[in-house]
């Protein structure tokens, strides 16, 4: 979906996120007992690591990017996949695992596999059935609703 991203911008974003993470960790870490040199407390490691990360991410901000070529980010198919997993995770415990899987498979077979809707649906339901056979019946995993 996002095309022609400047690699420099991407790298800067990641470095900035890492810097923010470092700041957050240090901030949260100071709320915990730091302890002493002889007996470090729970805040000791997070703060120490946060400081290292802050230094590294500042250095990354000023580093030359690896690539020059513009990058493409998040292909439509990738976004649809992410959405499908998210929806499956949402439905998983609400409507039971196997129906959620049938929806998940049908949707992705249709969207990614470019199957006709009826064959995607049939394969999705069959796939969910096989899933049941393998994971619930044979492996006896505990899935919501089964």
């Amino acid at each position: 979906m996002l095309k022609n991203i400047n690699p420099r911008a991407g790298e800067l974003c990641i470095a900035a996120v890492l810097l923010a993470l470092a700041g957050f960790v240090i901030f949260e870490g100071t709320k915990m007992p730091i302890g002493t040199w002889a007996l470090p407390g729970p805040g000791y490691f997070p703060i120490a690591l946060g400081i290292i990360l802050a230094v590294v991410s500042v250095a990354l901000l000023f580093r030359r990017p690896d690539g020059e070529q513009p990058v493409e980010l998040f292909h439509t198919d990738g976004l649809m996949t992410i959405a499908a997993v998210a929806i499956a995770a949402l439905l998983f415990e609400r409507i039971g695992a196997i129906p959620a899987f049938a929806i998940f498979l049908s949707a992705l077979f249709y969207l990614l596999g470019r199957a006709r809707w009826w064959s995607a649906l049939a394969m999705g339901i069959a796939g969910a059935g096989l899933t049941w056979l393998l994971f619930v019946y044979l492996l006896q995993l505990q899935l919501p609703g089964y």
Binding site: A84, V85, L105, L108, F109, L112, G113, R114, A115, M123
Partner: peptide, 8 residues
């Protein structure tokens, strides 16, 4: 397009 959903 079929393998990816299954493995996921």
């Amino acid at each position: 397009g079929y393998l990816a959903p299954i493995i996921l």
